[in-house]
């Protein structure tokens, strides 16, 4: 098996205030994958990224990037990593070209005008290369930050909430860019509040809550394992209560008795839907419409985090 491109072992972080931001995190990231780290505000996502990138010092544990320890062999490790932080922090008085070239030099790379041009073109920044960053829109500044992170040709790219506060068009552009980077072999770790984003792009999902990594799973497996489908029947006549003859399906009565909801396992061989519909016919319960809906990653995330919170209280 290929060694992980990023290996995090027994990582913990406690602040002087006593806050334990990370608790014994163990995580391996595979080369070339898109890994989405999900978690509510204050869960520890940014702390985790900041430690890997060298901005925050870990209390205990080890991290290695492409086999290089981030503390002992920090030069080699950091050369492999690019970071797009959550906050829009730019050198406002610099031009786009100058700031991206600066980033390349800072990371020890020889000047390469052709490469910088390609990065700027990929991010639709080429026409703005001579503009000062202060004159750009928020979305364009976000692109500049990505260009800066890519300037030294990193093999691992961290995107901390990359699409927070950007419009739909830019978000779609970023998704395209991220896919393009993955095709070139760049490993991408992103944190996001937009579950839709993780669902759309990620190969694997990690869920972090209160400093603990509570789940790491392939996205498809996760959807299959925890994803539920719901069948909703809109009744012709409202019901006062669920008839005894329907007890075995564990139905829920909704919308003042006008809807019957049945949750079923997508992985099961027999969903028992045909039997339910037959029984409804036998009982003379007529329906005017029916639809099915699969739970989204967001539903799964909310249920995971709330389960966790419930268990802790």
């Amino acid at each position: 098996m290929t060694p992980p491109v990023l290996s995090i072992q027994n990582l913990s972080k406690s602040y002087a205030s006593g806050l334990r931001a990370l608790k014994d995190i163990n995580l391996d990231i595979r080369k070339g994958e898109i890994f989405a780290l999900l978690g509510p505000n204050g869960a520890g996502k940014t702390t985790l990224i900041s430690i890997v990138c060298g901005i925050v010092t870990a209390t205990t544990g080890q991290v290695s990037a492409d086999g290089h320890d981030i503390v002992r062999d920090y030069r080699a490790a950091r050369t492999k990593i690019g970071l797009v932080p959550q906050e829009l922090a730019t050198d406002t008085f610099e031009t786009v070209w100058a700031t991206v070239s600066f980033s390349r030099g800072l990371f020890g790379r020889a000047p390469n005008a052709a490469y910088v041009e390609k990065v700027l073109r990929d991010l639709s920044l080429w026409d703005k290369r001579k503009d000062r960053i202060m004159t750009l829109s928020g979305g364009m500044k976000r692109r500049v930050m990505i260009a800066k992170a890519l300037a030294h040709e990193p093999e691992i790219l961290f995107l901390d909430e990359p699409t927070a506060g950007v419009d739909v068009e830019l978000r779609r552009d970023m998704w395209l860019l991220v896919r393009g980077l993955r095709e070139r072999g760049v490993t991408i770790i992103l944190t996001t509040h937009y579950i839709e984003e993780a669902e759309e792009m990620a190969d694997r999902i990690g869920v972090i809550s209160k400093g603990e990594l509570i789940l790491v799973e392939d996205k498809v497996t996760l959807m299959k394992k925890l994803g539920k489908k719901q069948l909703t029947l809109q009744l012709l006549e409202p019901l006062q209560a669920i008839p005894a003859g329907l007890g075995e399906w564990l139905l829920t009565l909704k919308s003042g008795g006008c809807e019957l909801e049945y949750s079923f396992d997508t992985g099961a061989d027999d969903t028992r839907i045909p039997a339910l519909l037959r029984r409804l016919g036998e009982l003379g319960i007529a329906y005017k419409d029916l639809n099915t809906r699969q739970s989204s990653l967001e539903d799964i995330f909310v249920s995971l985090v709330s389960e966790r919170a419930g268990a802790a209280s």
């Binding site: 030069r75 008085f93 030099g105 800072l106 990371f107 020890g108």
Partner: peptide
């Protein structure tokens, strides 16, 4: 010299130039 070496001369030069540009 590459950053992976013992001295990141390009990094030093990048900061120096950035600061002199501000000047």
């Amino acid at each position: 010299m590459s950053a992976a070496g013992s001295f990141n001369a390009r990094g030093v030069w990048a900061i120096y130039r950035f600061e002199m540009a501000r000047f």
